[in-house]
Design a protein around this nucleic acid. Structure first.
Lengths: 314, 314
DNA sequence: CATTTCACATAAGTATAACTTAACTCATGC
DNA sequence: GCATGAGTTAAGTTATACTTATGTGAAATG
C-alpha cells in the first residue's frame, strides 16, 4: 500500500488517454504506438490495484477511480508543462512581456512604445493590460508595473515614481479657471480608480488643501483613470489627475495644470520582476529605459506646492 | 526548441533537489544513489539548454532558471501526489470522511454519530466541519452535506430535507408565551447564518406571516446557527430555528415549538458526492442511513401551518 | 449474414533510460 | 596534511519503455 507515485510515464499516458477518451489518440499525442500506451495504462492499473478504464467494444470509459484521478492528473501535468515552458522562455531574449493596469498601459506605456522600439529594435515588447495580479510562475509575464504601496517580498522591486495629483484640464477650459473657487463653476470629473488609497485623494481632499469650500460630490465618475483623463481631453471638465498618467498630455500641451497645489500620496509605481530576472538583457534594458522615462516626469514637479494627503484629514 | 516536457524522472529529481536544496537528501528521498540523481539533473539541464543549479563547494543554489522552474514543479508534483493518494483511498472501505457546515455538524451529525456507529461498526466516520466549499479532487473528502439551493452539476446530489423555520424555546419560557404577540416581551435571538437566503427568513418575516406587528430588530445576533440554538437552550430567549438543526432538541423535549405557523424556504440540505461514488459501500451505507434519519424529522411537520417565505414580502 | 473495420489487448523481442558500484575532484575543517 | 562531505564521472547492469506483429470482439457495412 504505497502512496508514492506510480511510474510517471504511466501517469502521463493515463492523463492523455483521459483527456482524449481514446487510447489511440493519446498514443498519437505522445508519439508512441497504441500498444505501448495500452501497457502503460495496464501498468498504472496494477500499481493502483484497480482499473481506471472500462474497456468497451469501440470506446473506453473512466471507472470511478479514473474519474477521481483524471482531473488531478490533468491539473498536475498542466502545471508542470506551464512551468517548463516558462523556464524555457528565459532563453528567449527577443521578447519581453509586461503587464500593467489599463490606465498605465494606455496613458504611459502605449504613448512611449515607439521610443522603446527605437532604442531597442531587437526586443519585441508585448503589453498585457490587466488589473489582475499576475503570477510570474503561471502566466507568461516577465515584468509587472504595479501601483500601490508594496512591499513585494521575494521579488525584485524598483520604485519608479511617486504619485501626486493636481487638477488638469484643456487650455481652453483653463481660461475660465483663475482661482480654485472657479472650479465650482465647471464640471468636475472623478477618478474612482484610486479610491483604495488610504488617505483619500479626491476632489474633496484637494479643496481642503487649498482651503476653499466647494461641493465636489457632483460630476461623472470613472472607474478607470484613463477614461477620466480622456473625458478631460474633450474639454468636458477638470479632473484631479495622477501626474504619471497625465504627464504626456501636459507635456504635449493638450492639458494644463494651472494650480501649484498638488496632493502627494504614499502610493507609487513600481517595476516588479522575479528576483534575479533583472539581469536578463531585455529586462535590464526595459528597466533602464523606464527609469529614464520616469525621471523625465519630474520636470513638472518644479514650482509645485506639495501637500501630503495624509496631513489633510487631521 | 521543443516545449514538450523533459523526462519526467528528471523533473521529479529536480523537484526533490530544489525542495531539499541538496542532491544527497533528494536522492535519499527518491531511494536512489546521489550519482543517479546527479545524472538526472544533468539530463534536465541538457534538455533545458542551461543549468538549473549552480554547484558550489559544499552546497548547491538555484539559478534563475531553477528558481523559475521550482515552484511550478513542486506544485505540479504535489497535485499529482494528492490525486494519486485520493484515488488509492477509494479502495479503503473502512473510513468515510464527511464535510458539513459547523451548525449541521454540531446539531445534526454529532448527536447521531453513535447511531451510525451502532449500525455500521465497520466504518470509521470522520467529520470535517467547514463552511468552505470542499473540492473532492483535492481534499480528502468523500461526502459533503450542503445547505442552499443547488444544483450541483457533475456531482451526485440527493435532497435530504426541505428546511422550514418556527420559533423554539425552552418549555419553561414557553409558559410565558401564549400568543405570537407575547414574543415581544421576551428576548429574540437572531440566527444570521441564513441571511444569504433570498426571501429572508428572519423574525420580521415570521411576524408578518402571523400578521402581528412586533419590532424584531433587537436581541443578540449569532453568526452561526448552532450558537443561536445553544443560547435558546439556556432559556435566554426564543430563536426562529431551522427545523433540521433543532429537531433533536425538540424530540428530547429540551426545546418546544409552540406555534403552528412555520416558514418554508426553497433551500434544503443535500447529500453530495462525486458521481458514481454513491455506490461505494460505505458511502451507500451512509446515504441510506442519513436518508432514514432525515425522514424521521418529518414527524414535526404534522399540524404545521406552512407559509412560504417568498409569499410574504409581496 | 458474412465481411470489414475499428479500437484495444497480448506476445515476443529490442532499445534505451534509469540506476548502481566504484573511483575521482575539490574545497573545507580539524 | 589527511580525513570529510558533497557532487561528478566512468563503466557496467537492470528494468522500463517501446516496437512490430498478431489476436479479439463487437459494431458497421453492403
Amino acid at each position: 500500500m504505497t502512496d508514492r507515485l506510480p511510474p510517471l510515464t504511466a501517469l502521463r499516458a493515463f492523463d492523455a488517454a483521459a483527456r482524449h477518451m481514446s487510447f489511440a489518440k493519446a498514443a498519437a499525442e505522445l508519439n508512441i504506438t497504441p500498444a505501448a500506451l495500452s501497457f502503460q495504462i495496464k501498468s498504472l492499473e496494477e500499481h493502483l490495484g484497480q482499473p481506471v478504464f472500462r474497456r468497451l467494444n469501440r470506446a473506453v470509459e473512466l471507472t470511478e477511480a479514473g474519474r477521481t484521478l483524471a482531473p488531478g492528473a490533468a491539473d498536475g501535468f498542466a502545471t508542470l508543462t506551464t512551468a517548463w515552458r516558462n523556464t524555457r522562455r528565459l532563453q528567449d531574449n527577443t521578447t519581453l512581456t509586461v503587464t500593467a493596469g489599463p490606465a498605465f498601459t494606455a496613458k504611459w506605456l502605449a504613448p512611449r512604445l515607439y521610443d522603446f522600439a527605437q532604442d531597442h529594435p531587437e526586443i519585441e515588447l508585448r503589453l498585457s493590460a490587466s488589473l489582475r495580479i499576475m503570477d510570474f510562475t503561471r502566466d507568461e509575464i516577465d515584468v509587472a508595473i504595479r501601483f500601490g504601496y508594496g512591499p513585494d517580498d521575494g521579488l525584485f522591486s524598483q520604485r519608479l515614481a511617486d504619485e501626486w495629483m493636481t487638477p488638469v484640464m484643456t487650455p481652453e477650459l483653463a481660461k475660465q479657471v483663475k482661482t480654485p473657487l472657479d472650479l465650482a463653476e465647471i464640471t468636475l470629473l472623478h477618478d474612482d480608480s484610486i479610491r483604495f488609497l488610504k488617505p483619500s485623494c479626491d476632489w474633496a481632499a484637494w479643496f481642503k488643501a487649498v482651503d476653499v469650500n466647494v461641493d465636489s460630490s457632483h460630476g461623472p465618475r470613472f472607474s478607470q483613470a484613463d477614461h477620466a483623463i480622456d473625458a478631460a481631453l474633450t474639454g468636458t471638465g477638470a479632473v484631479l489627475a495622477r501626474i504619471s498618467l497625465s504627464h504626456k498630455e501636459l507635456y504635449d500641451g493638450r492639458l494644463v495644470a494651472p494650480f501649484a497645489t498638488a496632493l502627494t500620496t504614499k502610493a507609487h509605481f513600481r517595476f516588479i520582476c522575479p528576483k534575479g530576472a533583472e539581469t536578463r538583457p531585455q529586462i535590464k534594458a526595459f528597466l533602464v529605459w523606464i527609469m529614464k522615462e520616469a525621471e523625465k516626469t519630474r520636470s513638472f514637479e518644479e514650482g509645485r506646492n506639495f501637500i501630503a494627503s495624509e496631513d489633510i484629514q487631521g
